[in-house]
Simulated scan of single mutants.
Amino acid sequence: MKTNFYFIIFLLILGCSKPQPRRPINPKASTTIFQDNIETAKKMAKYEDEKILDFIRKDSLKVYQNSSNGFWYTYKNKNLTDTISPKTGDVVEIEYDIRDLNDSIIYSKEELGVKTYRVDKEDFISGIQKGIKLMKIGETITFVIPSYNAFGITGDGNKIEMNKTIKSNVKLINIK
């Protein structure tokens, strides 16, 4: 009986101890993989930016501006009289196409149709979302958008490949 009592006390003491958390076998492996991914992404972005700058140098008839939002743009048709630009929450109507840097059409404006878009309230191509806020009614701007501001590393699952820089001619038809 005494042995059973000591055995029960031993089990209670053992059962009251705090569980020890499991430690990773190799704690640096995930950090190393994460760092490698960051370095790869930086190299890809640098390569893509170099491709865009090369394209801009070759297109010497146009003056491209670098946006602080990570894309380049040039005016095809500038509205010099109007001062109103879309702001967050406005509903705009745009006409646009999507091309590659060789000017081959990926999606034509006829294929895409007129798009009604609520500024900053809907999911849309990031570079165009930000670029629309630079526009005035009647203007047409050509945007050169790196993949990280367009369709990213996955593409669109249809015609736009992985890590594809796009060019888009966008016309602002109306602001509501």
Rank of each mutant, 00 (worst) to 15 (best):
S30P: 01
S147W: 15
Y64G: 06
E111M: 09
N79M: 11
I106S: 01
G157L: 05
V144Q: 07
L11A: 01
A41Q: 05
Y64C: 06
T81A: 12
A41M: 08
I153H: 06
K42P: 00
S85F: 07
D54A: 12
A45P: 00
P27M: 02
M44A: 13
D103Y: 12
S108H: 03
Y117T: 00
S60C: 05
K121M: 10
K78L: 15
Y64K: 01
F124E: 10
K18G: 04
S85C: 14
I128Q: 08
V144L: 10
T165E: 05
I132A: 06
M162E: 14
E139P: 04
S67V: 10
F55W: 06
K133C: 10
K18N: 08
V91S: 07
T74Y: 07
M135F: 12
G89S: 09
T140Y: 08
F143A: 06
R23H: 04
I25A: 04
S126W: 06
V144H: 07
I98T: 03
T140G: 04
T88S: 14
N37Q: 11
I84T: 14
L101I: 12
T154W: 12
P27A: 00
K159A: 11
A45S: 04
S17G: 05
N26V: 08
T116C: 00
Y148K: 06
P24K: 01
K87Y: 02
K18F: 07
D36T: 06
G138L: 14
L112M: 12
M135A: 07
K51D: 07
K28M: 13
I160N: 02
K176Q: 10
D156R: 01
D49V: 10
N158Q: 12
I33Q: 03
E48T: 07
P21Y: 02
N77E: 15
P86N: 11
K58A: 13
S30G: 01
D123I: 14
S85V: 09
Y148I: 14
E93F: 07
I94S: 05
K18R: 03
Y148L: 13
I84H: 05
K164N: 04
Y64H: 02
S60N: 13
M162A: 14
I84E: 10
S68P: 01
I125K: 01
I173E: 02
T88L: 06
N169A: 10
G131Q: 11
S168L: 09
I105T: 13
S68L: 14
S126A: 15
